[in-house]
Nucleic acid binder design. Structure first.
Length: 421
RNA sequence: GGAGAUGUCGCAUAGUUCGGCCUAGUGCACCACCCUGCUAAGGUGGAGAGGGGUUUACACUCCUCCGUGGGUUCAAAUCCCACCGUCUCCGCCA
């Protein structure tokens, strides 16, 4: 939910944002109209209600013999009040529906356009060159006994897999390295629920256009989360936070579930795009004025992880039309995947400003003692998908894979993954 | 899954019997000031959340909120229905 005051006082800013996203700017005018209808209806209802309340007090204290006549009068008033209340709550719901469909107001500098209109922030590292034909991660995974796709499909269907042997160990090593990084930066570790209630899912903005991407358990009315961001954002819902000591930073580890309904035929090979994977996610609650600095900070942590994995990558500023509704800006880091000859997303970091917090009712106390929504940000610190880039980047001609130095300590000193017999 | 208990503005509670001076009282904690004078106490006042009106702002004023959503009624914390959470016991259980 965007700031209704901004909608009233600076509708042009919201219009520009909608245009950059390629969404309907006319929604802004609809929202403003609905807002004024809502307020008129509220005022009408509240005036009648005040009258009714006053009358009620008269009835309560009236002598018995006058009560009967007074009650008859009050009955007429009550039906008017009821009607006005209905109109008011309808108008309120209508405003919420329209205003809720407006995306977050993007931050200046975010490129306009869609999926391909991102702008490059920087490229880091040199893309690996091989004097042999590199194998893709699926082949390497099989060769090393690290990834068992066939049995994953047998047990659970397409886009499922087993991590096995050094593959399983590599994932745990990566997660542990990421956790240590997070701890060093002051994040509080959390292992989060992966099943959440509808209001939490809706509050984080995932039940909008992408609802078909989400697993749902109708028998229990619960959703399986595609990222621990959902639980991490819901963690402080309906709370007033004390941020006087600085931001609240959490590192949430969870398994993530995605239906991948809209990606049939894409990335069918290997574990690039799967229904289930693990992720360590950073999540920050900060004062609104600190949000942009925090975004840079999360990005820096991510880059240091990529560097520790000795990967070559680029940082991109995602275009407005490719942002989720909650994000005001999103930076992705994409690592070079040799056999694809392309950069592929390994991390994503969003600044949701106050949009998500407003919907989840997460506030802080301003200096004047009033409450105001906080800003929320999230970013990937490690996921299963990183194995793709790590295996492919560090492979050798014989199919072995050199373990990045920083990860060796998490693998009992193992320096090389070797093909199994 | 079964039985029972329970949910009140930070925490703890009063209020629910029998609907109406509940505009939800009190204690603790909190904030400001005063007094005292030394590691503690006393006094006065303030102070919940969301929204509307009016405001540069302060202030003022109105509406809503007693787990959630409905219902009955002129009037609901209080009565009725459904749901949710928590606790206790029983059952079941990777």
């Amino acid at each position: 939910m965007i700031d209704p005051t901004l909608l009233r006082e600076n509708p042009d800013a919201v219009r520009r944002s909608q245009q950059s996203r390629g969404s309907a700017a006319s929604l802004v005018d609809d929202a403003i109209a609905a807002d004024s209808v809502k307020r008129a209806a509220m005022q009408h209802f509240e005036r009648l209600r005040a009258e009714q309340n006053a009358f009620g007090r008269t009835v309560a204290t009236a002598p018995r013999e006058e009560k009967r006549a007074l009650v008859l009068q009050a009955q007429a008033l009550a039906s008017q009040v009821k009607e006005a209340q209905q109109k008011s709550s309808d108008a309120e719901a209508e405003f919420a529906r329209i205003a809720g469909s407006l995306g977050n107001v993007i931050i200046d500098g975010v490129p306009a356009g869609g999926e391909d209109d991102w702008s490059l922030i920087r490229e880091v590292g040199t893309t690996p060159a091989f004097d042999f034909e590199p194998r893709d991660h699926a082949d390497l995974g099989e060769l090393l006994g690290a990834i068992d796709i066939a049995r994953g499909v047998k047990v659970s269907g397409s886009r499922f897999y087993f991590l096995k042997g050094v593959g399983a160990r590599l994932e745990l090593a990566l997660m542990n390295m990421a956790l240590d990084k997070a701890l060093a930066e002051g994040f509080i570790p959390l292992i989060t629920p992966t099943l959440v209630r509808p209001e939490i899912m809706a509050g984080t903005g995932f039940l909008g256009e992408h609802a078909d991407e989400i697993y749902y358990l109708p028998a229990d009315d619960l959703y399986l989360t595609g990222t621990s961001e959902v639980a991490l954002a819901g963690y402080h819902s309906d709370e007033i936070l004390d941020l006087s000591g600085g931001p609240l930073r959490y590192a949430g580890w969870s398994t993530c579930y995605r239906r991948e309904a809209g990606s049939a035929g894409r990335d069918n090979r290997g574990i690039l795009r799967v229904h289930q994977f693990n992720k360590l996610e950073m999540f920050s609650y900060v004062l609104p004025d600190d949000a942009q600095a925090e975004h840079e900070r999360l990005l820096a942590y991510q880059e240091s992880m990529l560097a520790a994995c000795e990967l070559s990558y680029r940082v991109i500023d995602i275009a407005a039309g490719d942002l989720g509704s909650s994000a005001a800006r999103k930076f992705d880091i994409e690592a070079w995947v040799p056999t694809q000859g392309a950069y592929r997303e390994l991390t994503s970091s969003s600044n949701c400003t106050t949009y998500q917090a407003r919907r989840l009712d997460i506030r802080y106390r301003t200096e004047s003692g009033k409450t105001a929504p906080v800003a929320t940000l999230n970013g990937t610190l490690a996921t299963t998908r990183w194995l793709v880039a790590i295996l492919e980047t560090h492979q050798q001609a014989d199919g072995s894979v050199v373990v990045p130095t920083a990860l060796r300590g998490y693998l009992g000193g193992l320096e090389l993954f070797e093909p199994i017999a």
